[in-house]
Design a protein around this nucleic acid. Structure first.
Lengths: 205, 205
DNA sequence: TAGATTGTTAATCGATTAACAATC
DNA sequence: TAGATTGTTAATCGATTAACAATC
């Protein structure tokens, strides 16, 4: 990534990519910034600014060419670069994520799952093996994995985090309703489903 | 909700609630704004400002009393108010969400699921019935439901959205990698898992 | 040409951070 | 008292919006 983009920009670029992918499926060739802005309820000049950051140029009166713009976003956000990750917690959410093919399409490769339930250990979900949590250090170090997805019950969230940190994980995608305590060199993304849903719903008086 | 709070504030308040819940489990009685700020990597004055918005008062030198603060956040964000919702798409993600007990704890009550796969229709998942998508208008209007959770394959996302809108849904929690086209009076929250994960990972050079 | 669109600068807006008096 | 903390105002920072010349 050339210069670090702001989080908001990355999220919007991802949404633009969804739109472009959809347009491409429909066989369209061009799209304009007001069209994108309208779909997302944002200002069209913001769309143009964002697109400028991925080094794509539009054409006056016509807009942006869909295929190259899509490729620019993919390149800038690193969709093509394979990012290995593991899932800790082979429960419902963990199982759903490993079957969520879109993750793979955007470059995230789930290598394995971990759980402490011995009835799950040894099984395969979507052709990925479930290991016992005690094997985590071995597997992570063998495969040099830096991204961990945490989908365990909240009661063991911190305990599992400590194990992940110990094993050398640097990015934790946290689906538990818990705030995790980690060293400074580990980055946590709190998915915070509850907070997102509540803020969407907060318009309701 | 007295005055509409900013989305960022709502998300932070939810994270504070996670922390308070954890502290309560540990039997703690007080917590200070620098302690909360440290856990979240934000400024302590921001924490105090947020807490002021839910009408809770701290004590100099001691901090905030955990139980009442937790209750204030619950009241302001409406955790206690039951919010009925339906899930459209009884696949892996939909099935995982209906089994995700934390949603219920924060006041979201999933009433039913809908799918077009006749092998799923009639079954129950976590004691909620799976209906055929054609029944949606009937069920929604019967139960006055305004929140829909969309976990269908992206190819049918817009089609299902149109059905939801037709049936009177006003809030859509969108888990598909698609931007949905809706009328002005319908609010969409794009969960955008991909964008969130990419922005967490974007530090990596 | 007239009109729609891009690219870009300036202005605005809102959110976060810094600072500090008041309190216990 | 000394020190830690709250509550709050002012300053800063960054993100979004408005405006408009250039382009086709």
């Amino acid at each position: 990534m050339p210069n670090k983009l702001a989080d908001n920009v990355i999220k919007r670029l991802t949404l633009y990519h969804f739109i472009l992918d959809d347009c491409e499926t429909q066989g369209l060739e061009y799209i304009s910034s007001p069209q994108i802005a309208e779909l997302l309820g944002i200002d069209d000049s913001l769309v143009r600014k964002d697109i400028k950051l991925v080094n794509n140029c539009g054409k006056c009166k016509i807009g942006y060419e869909i295929k190259p713009l899509k490729a620019c976003i993919e390149h800038t956000l690193g969709f093509r670069k394979i990012k290995d990750a593991v899932i800790v917690g082979a429960g419902n959410l963990g199982s759903a994520l490993i079957r969520y093919d879109d993750l793979e399409q955007y470059g995230f490769n789930i290598v394995a799952l971990f759980d402490n339930d011995s009835s799950k250990v040894g099984q395969s979900i979507n052709s990925r093996k479930v290991h016992h949590i005690s094997e985590i250090t071995k597997v992570l170090q063998e495969k040099q994995i830096r991204i961990g997805i945490l989908t365990v019950p909240k009661g063991v969230a911190q305990e599992c985090t400590d194990i992940l940190v110990q094993a050398g994980i640097k990015y934790i995608w946290n689906f538990t309703p818990r705030v995790l305590n980690v060293p400074n060199d580990v980055r946590v993304w709190n998915e915070n489903l509850i907070g997102n849903l509540l803020s969407a719903w907060a318009d309701e008086s």
